[in-house]
């Protein structure tokens, strides 16, 4: 549904987005990750037609955003990073405006508003003016606007920003659910959301894609992925080192596999060794790898960039 090819956006001499290509199909929820200033919002603004790309192309549902912007925009629901909404309007009148702009009238309009009010938990503030809403409610109002026409493509820039833990959970569920029938791309700084909602994640840094894959694939890039942690009475690093590189701390050992093929059989080998030596096992588990470790390793921190 979303196809991006060689997208570039420069601001003055700065290349905010530098040759990004990817696709998002129907049924996918793509998490868009990257450090601050890496170009996530800029990319999303080009998808939604707010920024014209310096070069490269964006097509949404087969419509080139530069050539037939209206057709493309009709398919998209967009939550901007600022989650801005007209402050002097009430939630209800704002949603009515959004629905009317999407061509919804009469009964269909009423139904659409009722649906998003329920989905975004806005019924208690329906008649409240937007400038008196708390940050989280403002955010949800803008999210409701993005969903009002039941779009086929959703572009959500930090949809869980400013929400309380319960609402974060609800929004993640909502995104996952929407992803079954739509193409969804959302940016986030919360790595657990990748596990909670995404079918795939893309990590960008300084305007370039540095990694992408399913959450499991990304996690496997972690240095600790596949390692086994063992806590057992009598165990020694010396004996364990026959199986792989060993780190030990206070009687807890972490054994790293030598290569990917060994990773699959490492746990079995350790269990065999444990029973042969007669060690008393207190705990043992294999590491899935940490997303934030992967993230940190493949993206340069801000402080280094400057």
């Amino acid at each position: 549904m979303i196809r991006i090819e060689n997208l570039v956006k420069t601001f003055g001499t700065k290349r905010a987005v530098d040759g990004v290509s990817f696709t998002v199909e129907r049924g996918e929820v793509v998490g868009f990750l990257g450090p601050n200033g890496s170009g996530k919002s800029t990319t999303m603004r080009m998808i939604t037609g707010f920024y014209p790309p310096t070069s490269g192309s964006v097509t949404v549902g087969g419509h080139d955003v530069a050539e037939s912007p209206l057709d493309a925009k009709r398919l998209i629901g967009y939550l901007p990073e600022s989650a801005a909404a007209y402050p002097e309007m009430t939630v209800e009148s704002f949603l009515t405006f959004a629905a009317a702009m999407r061509g919804l009238k009469g009964e269909a309009q009423k139904k659409a508003i009722a649906r998003v009010v329920e989905r975004c938990f806005l019924s208690s503030v329906r008649r409240q003016s937007i400038d008196t809403l708390s940050k989280g409610y403002k955010h949800r109002t803008c999210l409701a606007q993005a969903l009002i026409h039941d779009p086929e493509v959703l572009v959500l820039d930090e949809p869980t920003d400013g929400l309380d833990p319960n609402q974060k959970h609800e929004v993640r569920n909502l995104i996952r659910e929407l992803g079954r029938s739509k193409a969804v791309i959302f940016s986030t700084h919360i790595l657990e959301e990748v596990d909670a909602a995404c079918t795939r994640a893309i990590i960008i840094d300084r305007g370039r894609i540095v990694a992408q894959g399913t959450p499991a694939e990304l996690r496997a890039m972690s240095a600790t992925a596949g390692a086994v942690t063992l806590e057992a009475q009598g165990a020694t690093a010396e004996k364990l080192s026959a199986l792989g590189r060993v780190e030990s701390l206070d009687g807890v050992f972490r054994i790293y596999p030598r290569d990917a093929s060994q990773a699959a059989v490492l746990a079995a080998a350790i269990i065999e060794l444990v029973s042969r030596e007669g060690w008393k096992v207190r705990g043992m588990f294999s590491e899935r790898g940490e997303l934030d470790e992967v993230f940190r390793r493949i993206t340069l921190p801000d402080t280094v960039k400057q």
């Binding site: 209206l70 925009k73 967009y78 901007p80 999407r102």
Partner: peptide, 14 residues
């Protein structure tokens, strides 16, 4: 100032 321009111009209008 309010940032609503981003919302307005990404709606299906020229």
């Amino acid at each position: 100032r309010a940032g609503t321009i981003e919302l307005l111009l990404t709606l299906p209008v020229t």
